[in-house]
Design a protein around this nucleic acid. Structure first.
Lengths: 150, 150
DNA sequence: AAGAATGGTTGCATGATTAAACCAATAATG
DNA sequence: CATTATTGGTTTAATCATGCAACCATTCTT
């Protein structure tokens, strides 16, 4: 593949995010982490990912600050991978992906998993709003490019 | 790579979304499309992507229903790639990625591009809310798995 | 009519991913 | 306490995807 291009220096926050979690497996690992998985073998079974790739992805996610490696609560010497606060900030990304999938990638009658409010059991909503509270779409927004000063 | 695994059959909407736009370039192309780019050469210059890869990614995005190929407004025979309504539904994903990047991937003093409400010029907000309107985080939600009936 | 831009296609070198085998350390079992 | 299974990897070889450069047909500009 000749060295995947790095977007670390890009001024666009989306690009930098994709630089960190934009590869084929990382977001699936994060999804499983949100789903409560913590152990190497759990991720491996859930995703069917090759173990060497999982090893590398977990290492990268830990290095990026999205996951952390902590001793298991059971007190053994085994470790578990857990989302850091930074990792939990990917929640909106996961919800947005989920909603897109629900809306466009399932047949009408097809069942799928659902993200619900633990308290009420009702599905959660995702809104993009202006400061005055009204919700807005892509055509009502502009990306302002702030020149980087040297 | 030995045949990248397909997640088309996964019950999880996030996984299916990633199956469509989870590769290295697709979301960057979509970002540029939100940014107003429409032409092959514009994407190519903006992203520095190899042309054969761009060709294939655009084709895939069109096949997925995220982009459409329409005659240019100028009336020539040239075509332009535009976001479909389905493609525009990726807006929350882009906003979520952007906010994550803004929050975690820039140095405090570092400038970056910003998504603002066209009307007010103020930054947009993204909220995840329960039905009663209160905003909720990952720990207040559960994923309910609905078994697929055959 | 000549040259440049657009929108690709093709071939090759190399990196990324996979599957499979292997392995050390720990945990469970008889 | 000896054996076996599980965990969490590493290594190797084969294969696929990607990037780069060269090339090309069509359209636009001058």
């Amino acid at each position: 593949m000749v060295a995947r291009k790095s977007l670390k220096g890009d001024y666009c926050p989306s690009a930098r995010s994709l630089d960190v979690i934009g590869d084929w497996w990382s977001l699936l690992i994060v999804r499983d982490a949100f789903d409560g998985l913590t152990r190497f073998s759990e991720f491996q079974k859930s995703l069917g990912i090759a173990k060497n790739i999982l090893t590398e992805r977990l290492r990268t996610l830990v290095a990026s600050g999205i996951l952390e490696l902590a001793p298991t609560s059971e007190g053994g010497t085994r470790m578990e991978y857990r989302l850091t606060p930074m990792g939990k900030d990917l929640f909106p990304v996961m919800v947005a992906l989920r909603q897109f999938g629900e809306r466009h990638l399932f047949a009408p009658a097809e069942e799928h998993s659902l993200l619900v409010d633990r308290a009420s059991g009702q599905p959660v909503q995702l809104d993009i709003r202006a400061q005055d509270g009204r919700s807005i779409g892509p055509d009502e927004t502009v990306i302002v490019k702030v020149a980087e000063e040297k």
